[in-house]
């Protein structure tokens, strides 16, 4: 019950009109980016905690991470993962590029097609 309350209300708006210093669109995206930046810092420190615990327990040293050399196969797998990651993050840029390249004129909206396929002629 309390977890549900936390999910529902941890991000609650304080009473009082929110000031916007930029356009609302820009500020909305910046706010989301800053929340993600915070979570990135959290994830980074969690990895750091893990490394230090492994080092303390004698499993490995952090120096081994700094001097780590993947095998050629491993390097390929890692390179592929980064490519996949970038493609996923920049999805909207790819889609805009595809739209620019499509030289068939203005694209049809699904709403337009809905009318078309629902009519007698469709």
């Amino acid at each position: 019950m309390t977890l549900e309350a936390a999910l529902a209300t941890a991000s609650a708006k304080p009473a009082g009109k929110r000031p916007y210093f930029m356009t609302a669109e820009v500020e909305r995206v910046l706010a989301i980016a800053m929340a993600i930046a915070q979570e990135l810092a959290v994830a980074r420190t969690r990895v750091d905690t893990l490394e230090r615990l492994l080092e303390r327990k004698g499993v490995m040293t952090r120096e081994e991470i700094e001097t780590f050399e993947p095998t050629p196969d491993e390097a390929t797998e890692r390179g592929l993962w980064v490519q996949e990651f970038i493609a996923r993050v920049l999805r909207i840029v790819q889609q805009e590029a595809e739209q620019i390249r499509a030289d068939a004129g203005p694209e049809l909206a699904s709403e337009d097609v809905a009318r078309e396929v629902s009519g007698d002629e469709g």
Binding site: A5, A6, S11, F21, A31, M34
Partner: peptide, 22 residues
């Protein structure tokens, strides 16, 4: 904008901690 967001994030972080174990 960043200062305001940092304060909002601080409230979010604290409320998450407090409400989940209220």
């Amino acid at each position: 904008a960043l200062r305001r967001m940092t304060m909002e994030q601080r409230q979010q972080a604290g409320r998450w901690v407090a409400v989940r174990q209220a």
